[in-house]
Amino acid sequence: MKILVCISKAPDTTSKIAFTEGNSRFDENGVQYIVNPYDEWYALVRALEIKEASSADITIVTVGNASDEAIMRKALAIGADEAVRIDAEPTDAYFVAKAIADFAQEKNFDLILTGKETINYNGSQIGGMVAEALDLPYISIASKLDVAGSSLTLEREIAGGVEVVQVNLPVVVSCAKGMAEQRIPNMRGIMAARTKPLQVIPPKNSDQLTSYVAFANPAAKSGVKLIDPSNMDELVSLLHNEAKVI
């Protein structure tokens, strides 16, 4: 089985979120990047478990610039076999998805895994776009994935419940919590990652359908109003009369 895992970077969760150049660009000053948690904890680790249970080749792909190779090496250290970087700034979901689909088209992957969403843009777009570009079925927000030959059984979130579905390979799946448990790379993995192949290729298209014109930080809260723990009637009355939420 040939598995492709789409890996993106995200600012470390404690990073200060600020903007520069007249609020038009994310301020990367002092920001540490990590592998987007959904891509690492769920998509990549589930791919490794499939490989351990039967056998599989795991390729990771990232659309990004040279500085992204650090997070790609981490994914290799956790256990991916090879890495491909599509050399471009990932500025638009359609552009990123087309770049991944153009690459995947030639390689005949059986299974393409993405994270549920990136924690920086929270778009939840890439998986569905890759699936459409390759004319493949797409299971979004899957929390369980089992393989039996060329058929997959998955669980996915639907409104207020969980749907169990079956689909044949090839397929695109976006992965969410429940799919696998986080793994910490060990020393052997880190050493091995240094010599694993990391190929750099150019994107085939340059179409961009959207752009960000500006960013803003939310207004600070005006300050908390403290209520005496013995006076919950006052809290209820504030929630009713002042906040108007009950």
Partner: peptide
């Protein structure tokens, strides 16, 4: 954007 820590203003081309 950034899990609710900021807002972005997006345009379609």
């Amino acid at each position: 954007v950034y899990s609710g820590k900021a807002f972005g203003f997006m345009k379609c081309n």
